[in-house]
């Protein structure tokens, strides 16, 4: 019975995550711990596995659109994988109540960002000299044809990606929101390039810490199998119906869910009940 309910809940998380672009991994861990009273470590293991599945499953569709900047992705993956391995090393020493509080804060921040429209910024500023040396500047397709863009703030973006990797490992999430923040806000990549390159990186980041957690016994097959299959099915369906869906009210509903889960995680964490 537990498997069935977990699969259904994960399906909903994957579906809403895909429709809103916020990702399903964000609500899987709160769902498993708050609703099903599963230990945080098992929840993190199952969630990371589902994050890898959705990120890799969607990759081909994104590549076809021609937005992913592979060099930016690979370069920043050095930061996210080192961050993820560091986070996995730290995880054993951080009490679960502190992790719950951190989770609550990340959820609140995500809700806040999701209600703000992506900011428009010029993409043809003079390039960061480091971006020239690393050949990060590229082109992307627009309605008006192929456009070139240059990359800013390489060092700061790299540092933010390390943080994204740490958070991904500690909380079992894709931390796509931090990745997009680093690429869109700091490195000034076009928004579409940021989101698709972020998706390209999420699976790699999650795989780094999932490997470590497998050895620590966080990945429990009885829990990971319904969660992975549920999230994957939900995300694939979500990607199919995305084109015709009215996403604004869905976004509001999902954001409300995220805020409620955030407050619950904060409460449980501060009371030490998780």
């Amino acid at each position: 019975m537990l498997a069935l309910f977990l699969a259904l809940g994960s399906f909903g998380a994957g579906l809403l995550g895909a429709l809103t672009g916020l990702g399903g991994g964000l609500v899987v861990v709160p769902m498993m711990t708050l609703l099903f009273h599963i230990d945080l470590r098992y929840a993190i293991g199952a969630s990371l596995v589902s994050v890898i599945a959705t990120s890799s499953g969607a990759a081909a569709a994104y590549v076809r659109e021609g937005f992913t900047n592979v060099r930016v992705g690979i370069f920043l993956e050095v930061a996210t994988t080192v961050g993820a391995l560091s986070g996995a090393a730290l995880a054993g020493f951080i009490p679960t109540s502190a992790l719950a509080v951190l989770f609550g804060l990340v959820l609140l921040y995500t809700a806040y960002r999701s209600l703000r429209a992506p900011e428009e910024h010029p993409t043809d500023l003079p390039s960061d000299p480091l971006a020239l040396r690393l050949r990060l500047n590229s082109t992307y397709p627009t309605a008006a044809g192929i456009r070139a863009y240059s990359v800013q703030g390489v060092k700061k973006g790299f540092a933010l990606m390390f943080v994204a990797g740490v958070l991904s490992a500690l909380l079992g999430i894709g931390s796509g929101i931090v990745k997009v923040l680093a690429m869109d806000h700091t490195m000034k990549l076009p928004f579409k390039v940021s989101t698709t390159t972020s998706n390209f990186m999420i699976g790699v980041t999650a795989a780094a810490s999932a490997g470590v957690y497998l050895h620590r016994g966080y990945i429990e097959p009885a829990l990971a199998f319904p969660v992975m299959l549920g999230v994957l099915a939900g995300a694939l369906l979500g990607a199919r119906i995305l084109a015709g869906a009215k996403t604004l009210w869905l976004r509001r509903i999902f954001t409300t869910v995220v805020v409620v889960l955030a407050l619950e995680m904060l409460y449980k964490g501060l009371r030490g009940g998780l």
Partner: peptide
């Protein structure tokens, strides 16, 4: 394009497409 811009050619895209499929 400004100097240092990696030009996406069709070969790049073909490779990425194959990789994306293999991932799926």
């Amino acid at each position: 394009q400004p100097p240092g811009t990696a030009v996406r050619d069709r070969r790049d895209e073909q490779i990425e497409l194959v990789i994306g499929r293999l991932l799926q």
